[in-house]
């Protein structure tokens, strides 16, 4: 019976996919000569010195849309991630205070693995921060950097054990504090133009408000105005969120072994 239901539902979904995308042609024929109008406008305006009121001063299309043209979407997306982490903590609240693995002894993997991991951890941190700093010029940005940063707590927990990570000062309270602090800074950047007499989420000057974040660095490297700051804060906010999640998972896993 379950098999029949599964077969019918899968077939319905597949036919909907096929009908929607091939027959109706949402994605068009295999060789669309022209770009869709919306995408064309984004590409035209994102770094155009001639259109002062529409430019985002960012040569990277995705960052310009993500943090300028459709910034509110991204803000709420960040909130959803925060909500998921808070939900996970709520499920396991009582375990976080039990403080397992407080011996402080390193009993992880062998010396070679630990030495190599030390280099890899530092390299990962450098790459992640570089993603955040250059997100407005090259592919990368806050989410990418934060996701790369999340590899660090995983490596620490796997190679050095969680007790050692705690002795280094990596606790869930601090990670959550990092998350909340940078989320607050993010909101501050968003409402700064409002305080200065402009609009919420304003980046460059708009009609009726001359407030503008610095669009260029000293040597005319594009900064993207608020895009640079938002990318940077988002990097640490996402990194904090993932660190909380993995500390929580590590605590749960070590509790199972201890029992």
């Amino acid at each position: 019976m379950t098999g029949l239901v599964a077969a019918v539902s899968i077939l319905i979904v597949l036919f909907a996919l096929a009908y929607g995308l091939v027959v109706l042609g949402i994605s068009g024929p295999p060789a669309p000569a022209k770009l869709r109008l919306l995408g064309e406008k984004y590409l035209y305006y994102m770094i155009n010195p001639a259109t002062k009121y529409f430019t985002a001063e960012s040569p990277e299309g995705v960052s310009a849309i993500l943090w300028d043209y459709r910034g509110l979407d991204t803000l709420y997306e960040t909130m959803v991630l925060f909500g998921a982490i808070i939900g996970a903590i709520l499920v396991y609240r009582e375990y976080l205070h039990s403080e397992p693995g407080k011996t402080g002894k390193i009993y992880g993997l062998s010396l070679i693995v630990r030495a190599v991991s030390k280099i890899i951890i530092w390299l990962t941190i450098i790459i992640a921060v570089a993603f955040g700093f250059t997100g407005q010029i090259t592919p990368g940005g806050g989410f990418v950097g934060g996701a790369a940063f999340a590899v660090v707590p995983v490596l620490l927990a796997l190679v050095y054990t969680l007790g050692y990570a705690r002795r280094l000062g990596l606790t869930h309270r601090r990670a959550l504090l990092l998350r909340a602090t940078f989320l607050l800074l993010l909101v501050l950047v968003i409402i700064t133009p409002l305080i200065a007499g402009g609009y919420v989420f304003q980046n460059q000057a708009k009609p009726g408000s001359s407030f503008s974040f610095p669009g260029r660095f000293i040597d005319s490297t594009p900064l993207g105005g608020s895009i640079f700051l938002l990318n940077l804060f988002e990097l640490f906010a996402v990194a904090g969120a993932f660190t909380v999640a993995f500390i929580l998972l590590g605590v749960i896993a070590s509790l199972k072994e201890g029992d």
């Binding site: 990277e60 790369a148 999340a150």
Partner: peptide, 16 residues
């Protein structure tokens, strides 16, 4: 952009 985010998320974080 999607490749960089997806590699870190799908190969790194989901697996862990």
């Amino acid at each position: 952009d999607v490749v960089l985010a997806y590699i870190a998320v799908a190969v790194g974080i989901y697996t862990a």
